[in-house]
Design a protein around this nucleic acid. Structure first.
Length: 837
DNA sequence: AGCACGCCGACT
DNA sequence: GTCGGCGTGCTC
């Protein structure tokens, strides 16, 4: 039997399957999806089995055998292996990179050097010496032994070992191991029927008090118990228990344990809540599709507070009733303890939770609950879409518009598209939920049936549960404030509202989508601006550390008090960041309690939850933060939401900035008045007339979407045309420009090869049919033209119709890498980019 | 990615 | 005359 194996070398030349023999001893362990150790050139590598074949004529001189199998149960399924291939084609990455992305970090290969028995073994007269024989026999019995372990065991024979290595009787070998081992704990096992313990008790000397206590405890509780737990409850030392084990009365051995991050936490069981009329209507649709096992994608547009989660929960229940599994995806930031609680509360131990705050070991153990079929529901961020389930009935993506569903490192996949692909492979239902759906998804609900990519079905929930009204949104024109002499960052209206809430002891959420203190620092005499020496970007001033920081590469320097260019002392901080707002609040409202949440205050593990808990317990009046305060939070006493500057997002030069502004304003407005108390929202802006601000204040997503879709159609942007962003970087500009231009020229040539009568290249008309059109913009300097001392150029491939585009770009990259491999030029390809940066 | 094989400068 | 530079090519 032979296996096709993808080896763990993410390089162009090794991006294909290699053939290996499956030794008969390993036959029943090697399956498609197995992780194996294989000899590759002079070393041993980890690889993934992607195909098995009985017999084939292979045109390779020597087929090597698979060395070992790394898991009892293959960590990947056939389906995930296929999905990996699809991802590698779709998003242009090496196949092994796609497969690796599906596994927890704990399963990343670790290569260890060890000593094994060499091929020279047997014919050597040296072996007559008993000492040598002992060493060789030992190594042989173990297969391979780490060098230090061997030296320790045969400490006196260091010279001999060296000699054996020199003669080739022993050789250095490489062993593939897991990065993370399973956690083991010493566990005490009393005899099965409890018999013999009484006997043992009588045999113990009278003064062996502690041992007697242990025996009595075990007679009362005749089941296995962790040694540490036993030591704690009976208050004895380990030696006491060990001596009982030595006499054979009890058994003491290592048992694999799960690291359960939610161990010891009881989740109150909840029952399905009664559904509103709207909820029932939506639920009926989803339930029917799940019950009929019909692959279908629903876009659930439900306003904030319309009770989407309850619909999810009941749909999952339908899935479980049928013996099938469900995956729930949420943005990392909204995977809060409250969210976990709702799912654990409804489905108890059937839920595995995967998020980035878990340690590698914890995540690995949660993941193994899936492979062991101990759970039926997975709730997690992005990568949970790869949960190795085989009977998926339902995949839910909450807040489907979130850009964090797009992975920014290779493989640069979009979770939504991977989910739809996976669901089509398994025949499962997908529910995309959002109060502000992405325009890509909305557009697909409006497509005609006959397209190659079938349409999604739109489900709508317009009412908030308990008929709570949407909070009124006031738009405040900051230009008017300036005219009337108010130069502070708070408008009069917002100032009064904050004062009022402080007085009433109600809570406030303030949003400013910019961290740090000031966005840039400028000399008022000569106009000098502090910029990063490694990146083409201005430095941000951080008040707490009195440092100027680069938000791209992390470079930091001391605050300047004197202009480095003209020595003037007139240094001024421009632009407002969260730190400055915090300081200002303290000045205007003495005694105000502010919690600031941004990446600077939430890097520590658990800090995110800590701040939210403090706010919930009303230990603060204001929750001030970047977009992380806009998502999914639900606090009953929040009656005021203030957006300090809506323009920060709007002014970013990106075709999605209007959409992002609308989403952000809608999400943050949804934080107010979710309970009995009526809420109020203030949006400060210098562009109050902009349609994204206007429609957000009217809570009118559909009107906004129609407007924005028109804009996109006219400009030829997604969802009507799709994009591939290709970025080049190099330390020298002239070479970079030359290469980027050569790339674009070649790309156009290759694209023309694909030109047939239904493929219409470089047509600029936006017609609504399905023909393939493609255009290349650039190359131009990237918006951030230098990062970490590397200059950046980019080109944007625009296309529509069926996508050979990724293939065309892929072929161009391959052609290009053959010619530029010796230069340190980096090319990065991003299919369906979220940001054109 | 590693690592070997393979052709041209400064040293015992 | 050799030791060693890293350019090119292969790994089942």
């Amino acid at each position: 039997m032979y296996a096709k194996v993808i080896v763990d070398v993410p390089a162009k030349q090794t991006n294909r399957a290699f053939d290996y023999e499956v030794p008969s001893a390993l036959r029943k362990w090697v399956e498609v999806g197995s992780r194996v150790g294989v000899p590759f050139g002079p070393r041993v590598l980890q690889g993934f089995v992607v195909e098995l074949q009985e017999n084939t004529q292979l045109d390779v001189k020597r087929i090597k055998p698979i060395q070992n199998v790394l898991d009892l149960v293959p960590p990947l399924t056939d389906e995930l292996v296929m999905l990996g291939r699809w991802i590698s084609h779709m998003y242009l990455c090496h196949e092994v990179t796609a497969l690796q992305a599906m596994l927890p970090a704990a399963l990343k290969a670790k290569y260890e050097r060890a000593i094994g028995v060499g091929e020279e073994f047997g014919e050597q007269s040296l072996l007559d010496m008993p000492d040598l024989q002992a060493i060789v026999a030992y190594v042989k019995s173990k297969g391979s032994v780490p060098m230090d372990a061997l030296m320790e065991r045969f400490a006196a024979d260091g010279a001999l070992i060296k000699q054996l290595l020199g003669a080739g009787i022993l050789t250095e070998v490489q062993v593939v191991k897991d990065r993370m081992s399973t956690k083991k704990a010493l566990t005490v096992f009393p005899p099965a029927d409890g018999s013999g313990l009484e006997q043992a008790l009588s045999e113990l000397p009278a003064r062996a008090n502690k041992q007697q206590e242990v025996l009595r405890y075990l007679m009362e509780h005749p089941h296995a118990i962790r040694l540490t737990e036993l030591m704690e409850t009976v208050e004895v030392g380990a030696s006491t228990v060990k001596s009982l084990a030595d006499r054979g009365w009890i058994e003491l051995r290592e048992v694999e344990v799960m690291r359960d991050p939610y161990a010891g936490r009881a989740f109150a069981r909840t029952k399905p809540l009664p559904l509103t009329e709207e909820q029932s209507r939506v639920f009926a649709e989803i339930r029917a599709a799940v019950a009929e096992e019909r692959h279908e994608v629903f876009l659930l547009h439900g306003v904030t507070g319309s009770g989407k989660t309850e619909v999810y929960l009941q749909s999952i229940q339908q899935c479980l009733d049928m013996g099938k599994e469900a995956i729930v995806l949420v943005p990392e930031i909204s995977l809060t303890p409250q969210m976990v609680e709702r799912f654990k509360g409804r489905f108890g131990d059937l839920v595995a939770v995967l998020h980035s705050r878990l340690s590698n070991g914890e995540r690995y153990d949660e993941w193994r609950k899936i492979t062991r079929k101990q759970v039926k529901v997975v709730i997690g961020a992005r990568s949970a879409i790869f949960a190795p389930f085989t009977q998926i009935g339902l995949i839910i993506i909450d807040e489907e518009h979130e850009s964090s569903y797009k992975q920014e490192e290779s493989p640069k996949y979009h979770t939504r598209d991977v989910a739809v692909k996976r669901a089509s492979m398994q025949g499962s239902v997908v529910v995309l939920g959002s109060a502000t759906p992405s325009l890509e998804s909305l557009e697909r609900t409006r497509r005609r049936q006959d397209r190659a990519e079938p349409p999604y079905r739109l489900l709508t929930m317009k009412e908030r549960v308990a008929s709570r009204p949407m909070p009124p949104v006031a738009i405040i024109d900051m230009r008017e404030e300036l005219k009337s002499g108010n130069r502070s960052m708070f408008s009069t209206a917002l100032y009064k509202a904050i004062e009022d809430r402080l007085h009433k002891k109600e809570q406030i959420v303030l949003l400013l989508n910019r961290r740090g203190y000031a966005t840039f620092v400028m000399c008022r005499t000569c106009g000098y601006v502090s910029t990063c020496p490694h990146c083409d970007i201005s430095l941000t001033y951080h008040q707490s550390s009195r440092m100027l920081r680069c938000h791209y590469c992390g470079y930091a320097e001391r605050e300047v008090t004197e202009c480095p260019s003209c020595q003037s002392k007139h240094i001024r901080h421009f632009g407002t960041g969260t730190q400055r707002v915090e300081e200002e609040l303290g000045k205007i409202f003495p005694g105000i309690r502010v919690i600031r949440m941004d990446v600077d205050t939430t890097t520590e593990k658990g800090s995110h939850e800590k701040w939210l808990t403090m706010f919930r317990e009303k230990q603060a009046d204001v929750l001030l933060g970047t977009q992380m305060v806009a998502k999914g939070l639900d606090f009953p006493d929040v009656t005021l939401v203030g957006v300090i500057a809506a323009d920060t997002v709007l002014n970013i030069p990106d075709f999605r900035s209007a959409e992002r502004t609308f989403q952000l304003l809608t999400q943050v407005a949804g934080r107010a008045g979710r309970h009995e108390k009526q809420g109020e929202v203030f949006v400060q802006t210098y562009t109050p007339e902009h349609y994204s601000v206007q429609y957000a204040s009217q809570h009118d997503f559909i009107a906004f979407a129609n407007h924005e879709l028109d804009v996109r159609a006219n400009l030829g942007y997604p969802p009507y045309q799709r994009l591939i962003l290709v970025t080049f970087s190099h330390e020298q500009v002239p070479l970079l420009v030359r290469f980027a231009e050569a790339f674009v020229t070649r790309l156009k040539e290759i694209a023309l090869e694909y030109s047939t009568k239904q493929i219409d290249l470089f047509a600029d008309a936006v017609s609504r049919d399905n023909s393939f059109q493609m255009d290349v913009l650039g190359p131009v300097a990237s918006p951030i033209s230098r990062i970490k001392d590397r200059y950046r150029f980019q080109c944007v491939v625009k296309y529509r119709g069926e996508d050979q585009a990724a293939e065309i770009v892929g072929r161009t990259v391959a052609w290009f890498e053959e010619r530029s491999s010796k230069e340190k030029l980096l090319i990065s390809v991003d299919v369906d980019p979220q940001y054109l940066m």
